[in-house]
Amino acid sequence: MKTKQDGVGAQLSFALYGAANRVVRLHKPFLDPLGLTFPQYLVILELLSGSPRSVGELCERLGMETGTMTPILKRLQIAGMITRTRDVNDERRVLIDLTDASRAIGNEVRAITGRIRAACQLTEQGIQALRRTLDALGHPAAE
């Protein structure tokens, strides 16, 4: 006889997958009017906290590989949201900066965080505890 502990529903990975998908879907109605995908939103949000940034810095901060980041940055550049320029001090580095267009939507981009928090219906303590748990799972101290 099967119990609740059997099957995909009992898997931690299934719960994480479902939660991640829900959170990404919650962003969609806020991102669509801005013309941003979820990964593009993360890049813009990170750049709003300080720019210019090198591609490597963005990859590290967002936990993405260069092969994943490059197409996102290319699409943002085509959309007029970022600039990509070679670092004059080190031509191997590409610096990413916001454009006036992306700075103009900065307040709207930042406001999405509060809307998502409200939609998740978690207390501030619950959000902090969940973030610590997920950070520990995603970035274990000793691997």
Score class of each variant (00 low, 15 high):
108 E>V: 00
46 E>S: 15
108 E>A: 11
27 H>R: 02
5 Q>E: 14
12 L>D: 02
119 A>Q: 07
62 L>Y: 03
89 N>A: 13
14 F>N: 12
68 T>F: 03
138 G>N: 10
55 V>I: 11
71 P>M: 03
72 I>R: 08
65 E>Y: 07
104 A>D: 15
121 Q>R: 13
113 T>E: 12
136 A>W: 00
112 I>N: 06
85 T>I: 14
108 E>F: 02
26 L>Y: 00
51 S>Q: 15
118 A>I: 02
56 G>M: 11
54 S>E: 11
127 I>L: 13
80 G>N: 09
49 S>T: 11
23 V>I: 12
43 V>G: 07
14 F>P: 00
141 A>S: 12
41 Y>N: 03
41 Y>E: 01
76 L>P: 10
25 R>K: 10
34 L>V: 07
131 R>H: 05
103 R>L: 15
6 D>A: 04
118 A>L: 06
48 L>T: 11
109 V>P: 06
15 A>D: 04
121 Q>S: 13
100 D>F: 08
34 L>P: 07
84 R>E: 14
139 H>K: 11
33 P>K: 05
58 L>T: 07
22 R>M: 03
52 P>T: 12
42 L>P: 00
70 T>S: 15
86 R>P: 06
58 L>I: 11
102 S>E: 07
69 M>H: 07
142 A>K: 10
114 G>R: 06
56 G>W: 05
127 I>A: 06
7 G>I: 11
124 E>I: 06
139 H>R: 10
9 G>M: 06
94 V>L: 13
87 D>R: 09
13 S>F: 01
75 R>N: 11
90 D>A: 08
6 D>E: 12
101 A>Y: 01
77 Q>T: 14
10 A>C: 07
2 K>F: 13
61 R>S: 14
48 L>S: 11
88 V>A: 14
123 T>C: 08
109 V>G: 09
26 L>G: 00
93 R>Y: 04
113 T>L: 05
51 S>Y: 14
121 Q>W: 01
99 T>F: 13
19 A>D: 01
120 C>R: 12
84 R>S: 14
85 T>E: 15
61 R>H: 10
126 G>Y: 02
16 L>Y: 04
83 T>P: 00
11 Q>A: 14
11 Q>Y: 05
141 A>D: 10
24 V>Y: 03
98 L>F: 08
24 V>A: 06
102 S>T: 09
23 V>N: 00
111 A>R: 12
49 S>K: 15
116 I>L: 08
47 L>Y: 04
45 L>Q: 11
85 T>K: 15
123 T>E: 09
9 G>E: 08
45 L>G: 01
52 P>V: 13
71 P>D: 05
66 T>V: 12
105 I>F: 06
9 G>V: 04
84 R>W: 02
125 Q>F: 03
35 G>L: 07
47 L>W: 06
105 I>W: 09
32 D>H: 05
36 L>A: 06
48 L>E: 12
35 G>D: 05
49 S>Q: 15
32 D>T: 12
10 A>P: 01
33 P>D: 04
105 I>L: 12
10 A>Y: 04
86 R>D: 11
84 R>Y: 05
65 E>P: 01
12 L>M: 07
123 T>V: 06
7 G>A: 09
18 G>A: 02
115 R>P: 00
134 L>G: 00
99 T>P: 09
101 A>M: 03
40 Q>Y: 05
53 R>S: 14
57 E>W: 01
19 A>H: 03
131 R>T: 08
19 A>E: 04
133 T>F: 12
114 G>F: 04
130 L>T: 04
23 V>W: 01
91 E>T: 14
